[in-house]
């Protein structure tokens, strides 16, 4: 049918035939399998590394009473986790800290992001407040704890306030960076299309900043948790920070680790949720 000297199937005129298509599908499937295998290998290596670490830990503390007292042991930690799960304190403490963290995360990010984005509106205002933002951002959160407790009491509110404060400046800075980083040519294009400043903000600046805003979200999950735990250290009757503090002052080190495991799990779950929401809100990032 064609006089081409090169018998290249894929580029043959008249479109792609069934055999070529099937070959392409096979290649794609093989590629996908290879990728899956690579991911599986990574996960298996991670499990092996963790298992080796725990085994070494267990072995080093098994025959040494003093080491077992100082460092706990995986089996003792697991035992405490079991007991705490049975008596319900594990769930209650995780729930309390989870609520404090989540609320602090939400309030801090909403306030920080709103301020950060709206600073895009005025170069003047953002220049005026820049040194104050840097100053506030450099205060170690723990230094604020005594005042926060005086202002907000020893209950839930003070933990949420601590958590919010450790999040808000980071959220403000990352969202502002995202907003001012928008391509100048893109803004010019919007202007030539007749967009008002608000339209540029809503249709360009906000969506273009989403990637940075979510990077901030991922960063601030940890900060929110630190705020909540530090708040619980200062004064509390429940929560994972409370459990860590109490077990620590009684020298029950495996119990400290048990509460720490729950804290890590909480952080992982929250980070996972943020990642899912990000994928949901930015479907175009999955492509390309």
């Amino acid at each position: 049918m064609n006089g081409s000297p090169l018998p290249l199937r894929a580029t043959a005129p008249g479109g792609v035939d069934a055999a070529t298509q099937a070959a392409a599908a096979r290649r794609l499937a093989a590629h996908r399998r290879a990728r899956l295998r690579a991911t599986l290998l990574v996960i298996l290596s991670q499990i092996a590394l963790l298992a080796a670490f725990l085994a070494l830990w267990e072995y080093m503390t098994a025959f040494d009473k003093q080491a077992a007292f100082m460092f706990g042991s995986p089996s003792a930690i697991a035992g405490f986790l079991m007991t705490m799960a049975r008596d319900g304190s594990l769930w209650r403490d995780t729930y309390v800290t989870g609520v404090e963290t989540l609320l602090g995360f939400l309030v801090g990010n909403v306030i920080g992001t709103l301020i950060g984005l709206s600073l895009w509106y005025s170069r003047f205002v953002s220049r005026v407040i820049e040194p104050f933002v840097i100053a506030l951002g450099s205060i170690p959160i723990i230094a604020l704890a005594p005042i926060i407790i005086i202002w907000f009491g020893t209950g839930l509110t003070s933990k949420i306030a601590m958590s919010t404060l450790s999040v808000v400046i980071v959220a403000l800075v990352t969202s502002y960076k995202g907003a001012v980083g928008v391509d100048e040519d893109q803004i010019n294009l919007m202007r030539t299309l007749g967009a008002s400043k608000f339209q540029i903000f809503r249709k360009l600046v906000v969506p273009a900043s989403l990637a940075d805003i979510f990077a901030g979200f991922k960063l601030t999950v940890g900060f929110a948790l630190i705020g909540a735990i530090v708040g619980e250290f200062m004064s509390s009757s429940e929560g994972l920070g409370h459990a860590i503090f109490k077990a620590g002052s009684l020298y029950i080190i495996p119990k400290v680790f048990a509460a720490l495991v729950a804290t890590i799990a909480l952080a992982l779950v929250l980070t996972f949720i943020v990642g899912k929401v990000e994928k949901l809100l930015m479907p175009w990032r999955r492509l390309g």
Binding site: D183, D185, Q186, L189, K203, L204, P207, L210, W284
Partner: peptide
């Protein structure tokens, strides 16, 4: 219109 297409990725 510029050399950069400036399409909004979202």
């Amino acid at each position: 219109m510029l050399q950069k297409d400036l399409l909004l990725p979202w």
